[in-house]
Design a protein around this nucleic acid. Structure first.
Length: 636
DNA sequence: TAAATCCGCCTTTTT
DNA sequence: GGCGGATTTA
């Protein structure tokens, strides 16, 4: 299909600061991909193009589309990644200038929470009641997102300020970096070392940013720094799809963008006009937005289907029945997606998908292939966390969080009391825990064995293949036996051991990469571990949150759990407010190309209890002429 | 020292 | 209804 006029313009405007206001389904990704291809065709070195996205999924999708347009060989040379993984790459090479070693660890939210808790306890004394850390954590993230020091930040209480200071210095002591500081450290690096910045400016002369409405102050600054020399910065976004306010995103970044060229993409190619009308009707209720006229030349086609099932289980079954029917009608599994507000909602649908029976060429089949995106599952499993903690502690002995996790796992007779003694020593003398351990190794056999083990492992991991060394390590620590002793049920044991094997496999896939790369990648991208052993675009039903669905499209979408309290989420009201929740619904609706089904349940299990629900208030914003209310059991 | 039990918090969304 | 952490019990 030919590009339309404004799309063409966006593709061909390759110099200067370009703002592309791209409504949902207006071919934004297509424009970006074609623009990259065009740059290359005009003689730009593919290696000097940098495309930044927010989610791994969006980056992968863009890469996929780019490579099918211009071929994998050239496509691979373009840097397409998330802000975080870009900063990771930068810091991996240059962080020594900031006083870290390039073996630094990346702390995920869990690590940070534990660290925050530990520091809080230290500050308040052991007997003190822990305060609610919610608002404090928000303030910490906020400061980190602005790249502020404890002094620069704006704090509501001295506790937060003090904690922030301690947190920063602990991270430094542990040679660790948080997700937030990944970006602010890159900025710090560039600001303090102009020569380094210039190298990157020379390397990446053409910068493109997807979903620009979701940039936070740090990401904004990073983009400005990188593009400062050549001023080739193309940002693409849509204020109606700003859904990361809770992470510090500021829509004003896109609204106030100083552009040499502004291009508006307002023709929607994705959805039927019914779906688009519904989306427009919903988003019109937001006050804070630029009014725009998103239109479609597509035909009306079928109305939106809405149903309200008695229970959440009925809802799931009803959705799966419709999925089977669409499959019978010729849709592929991968053409269909189930979208929800929060990850916890995926459960029922997974169960229903696994239990579903359907016919393939007259034969009965059980279970529909599906893939859940996001969610914590795999990397949150204790056995995976253990192994990763080993790898982290081996790669970076200063990583105290990791060290503490595994020092007595599997049990090797290093008691909590003894450990407490050691950490006291490490705090009072300001020596890294690892050094304290080394010094104390003589006192206790178990400890010296552990120290020796870690040293030997560090040595062995210096030479590939890494997976073999991991196998050695697992054997050496008797992890299999530990699982057998620890876990009661046979099934669970097998499952855990399988996960361990999968971890080894994932490491084996990391050919050529270092141990650090592997650890960083698994932390940066929750999916890698599971995905690498599987293939990318398989024929599977997609399950994901509204947030991860952004930037994607499916012929058939099922928006589920549309109940007040879930969407809008009850906890959103205080923070980001109703409008962001509405935008989230808007994003969900506009993912659908042809079939859109909205569903809810009259009662839902919530934390073990069944309680009644009300339909989402947003549903009433859709004109009645656009949808049909169906019985959950009866097909329309 | 380790197993057993209890308690509280949790579930918003992503990197 | 599950998990991590703390407290109690063997």
């Amino acid at each position: 299909m030919k590009l339309n006029e404004p799309q063409e313009q966006a593709v061909h405007t390759i110099k200067g600061r370009v703002l592309v206001l791209a409504g949902a389904g207006s071919g934004k990704t297509r424009v970006i991909v074609h623009r990259i291809a065009h740059l290359i065709s005009r003689g730009v070195d593919p290696q000097s193009i940098l495309g930044l996205t927010f989610t791994n999924k969006a980056a992968a999708e863009m890469r996929h589309r780019l490579e099918s347009l211009i071929g994998a060989n050239v496509g691979k040379q373009v840097t397409l990644c998330t802000f975080h993984s870009f900063c990771m790459q930068v810091l991996r090479k240059e962080i020594e200038r900031l006083g870290y070693t390039n073996q630094f660890s990346l702390y995920d939210e869990r690590d940070m929470n534990r660290l925050i808790q530990q520091l809080t306890r230290e500050m308040l004394g052991h007997d003190g009641e822990l305060p609610s850390l919610g608002p404090t954590k928000a303030a910490l993230t906020n400061a980190a997102n602005r790249g502020q020091t404890a002094e620069e930040g704006t704090w509501h209480d001295s506790f937060s300020k003090d904690l922030y200071g301690r947190l920063t210095s602990s991270l430094r002591a542990y040679n660790a970096v948080s997700f937030d500081s990944l970006i602010s450290l890159a900025i710090q690096l560039f600001e303090e070392h102009p020569a380094v910045l210039e190298r990157f400016q020379e390397r990446y002369q053409y910068l493109m940013i997807d979903e620009y409405q979701d940039t936070n102050p740090a990401q904004f600054r990073l983009a400005e720094l990188l593009s400062k020399k050549y001023q080739n910065l193309c940002v693409v976004g849509d204020d109606d799809q700003s859904i990361y306010g809770w992470r510090g995103a500021e829509v004003k970044n896109i609204l106030n963008f100083k552009a040499d060229h502004t291009i508006k993409l307002e023709q929607n190619y994705r959805s039927t006009s019914i779906i688009l009308e519904a989306a427009n009707a919903v988003i019109r209720n937001n006050q804070n937005r630029y009014d725009k006229k998103l239109w479609s030349a597509n035909q009306k086609d079928e109305p939106i289907e809405v149903f309200n099932a008695p229970t959440d289980i009925d809802e799931a079954n009803a959705v799966i029945n419709r999925i089977i029917r669409l499959h019978d009608q010729g849709l592929k599994w991968k053409d269909m997606a189930i979208l929800y507000r929060s990850n916890a909602l995926s459960r029922q649908f997974e169960v229903a998908l696994m239990q579903a029976s359907w016919q393939k060429e007259g034969k009965w089949m059980r279970g529909i292939p599906y893939e859940v995106f996001g969610g914590l599952e795999f990397s949150e499993r204790s056995e995976i966390k253990d192994l990763l903690a080993y790898l982290r502690a081996i790669a970076n002995p200063l990583d105290q969080e990791a060290l503490l996790r595994i020092i007595n796992v599997p049990r090797r007779g290093i008691s909590d009391a003894y450990l407490d003694q050691l950490t006291q020593a490490n705090r009072s003398s300001n020596t890294p825990l690892w050094n304290v351990l080394e010094k104390a190794a003589g006192e206790k056999k178990a400890l010296s064995a552990f120290v020796d083990l870690m040293k030997e492992a560090a040595l062995r991991f210096k030479t590939p293949p890494l997976a073999d060394t991991l196998t050695w390590l697992i054997d050496k620590i008797n992890y299999k036996k530990a699982i057998e002793e620890e876990v009661k049920s046979e099934k669970m044991r097998a499952f855990k051991w399988e996960n361990v094997q999968e971890c080894v496999n994932a490491l084996a896939q990391e050919e050529g990469g270092s141990l650090q790369d592997f650890i960083a990648n698994t932390t940066l991208n929750r999916q890698t571990m599971q995905n690498k052993s599987k293939k990318g675009h398989e024929d599977k039903v997609h399950l994901m949150t509204f947030h991860s669905a952004k930037g994607l499209e499916f012929p058939a979408c099922f928006l589920v759990g549309l109940e007040d309290g879930i969407l809008p989420h009850e906890k959103s009201m205080m923070q980001t407010g109703l409008e962001e929740e509405r935008r989230l619904f808007y994003v969900g609706i506009t993912r659908a190309q042809k079939h859109l089904t909205l569903s809810m349940a009259r009662t839902r299990m919530r934390m073990g209890k069944t309680s009644p629900t009300n339909p989402s208030r947003f549903l009433f914003e859709i004109p009645k002429t656009l949808y049909k209310v169906a019985d959950h059991k009866i097909f329309a």
